[in-house]
């Protein structure tokens, strides 16, 4: 069972665990918070899982257990201030806390089973598409208010084009301009959506034609 070749992971696990535990102990004992409390707990949980990972033959299940437990822990931690109430007169905290504990429980069961069973490995995430697709989406929202739909659409399509390895700049640019034109015509003029299509919330037609 022991795979000492995975020493790196073991060291990582230990570091995370100790760091997290130390934060929590210091906070409890002296009332000094080095990190926000949840991050300390996150470190502890991450440490436990990093330590378990080399022993698991079903890393994907173990990983999902980690994510699920983390969500449940977040529910417990951030819901701690809410009034609990009693079963007969439930406060706002009753159901969330009940649920969060159930989630942690489910996560623990999944994690426990993952230790004994065979399962697929976790695939390495492809950073490139994730980064550029999300960047394009966020850029769209934040640029729209300032420079209007027409230019934003071009920028956002261009960012998205980088999500693939083979970037053809000229082709993407032509396509971006065409699709931006189509979007302005369809969404702003045909469907009348309240989107600014020019900088400063103006409409292009106002600026060009005066209406």
């Amino acid at each position: 069972m022991l795979r000492l070749t995975r020493q790196n992971e073991f060291v990582w696990a230990l570091v995370l665990l100790i760091l997290g535990a130390q934060c929590i102990i210091v906070q409890r004992a002296f009332g000094v918070e080095e990190f926000p409390g949840f991050i300390a707990w996150l470190l502890v949980i991450a440490g436990i899982f990093a330590g378990l990972l080399p022993y698991s033959r079903a890393p994907r299940d173990l990983g999902s257990a980690f994510v699920i437990i983390l969500i449940g822990a977040a529910g417990i931690y951030f819901g701690a201030d809410l009034t609990m109430g009693t079963a007969g007169r439930m406060g706002p905290g009753y159901f969330p806390r009940l649920l969060s504990w159930c989630i942690v429980g489910m996560g623990a069961i999944i994690g426990f089973l993952a230790l004994g069973s065979e399962g697929p490995p976790i695939e390495k995430p492809h950073i490139r598409p994730i980064f550029f697709v999300l960047a394009s989406l966020v850029a769209f929202g934040y640029l729209l208010d300032y420079i209007g739909l027409a230019v934003t659409a071009v920028v956002s399509v261009m960012i998205a084009a980088f999500a693939r390895k083979e970037v053809k700049l000229l082709e993407s640019l032509i396509f971006a301009v065409l699709i931006s034109l189509a979007c302005v015509l369809i969404f702003v003029y045909a469907l009348g959506q309240p989107l600014p299509d020019c900088p400063n919330g103006f409409r292009c037609s106002q600026w060009l034609l005066g209406f």
Partner: peptide
């Protein structure tokens, strides 16, 4: 995909 992504953006924003 860039077009679909753009439509996603417009949909969420509007």
């Amino acid at each position: 995909y860039p077009a679909i992504l753009l439509f996603c953006g417009i949909g969420i924003y509007s």
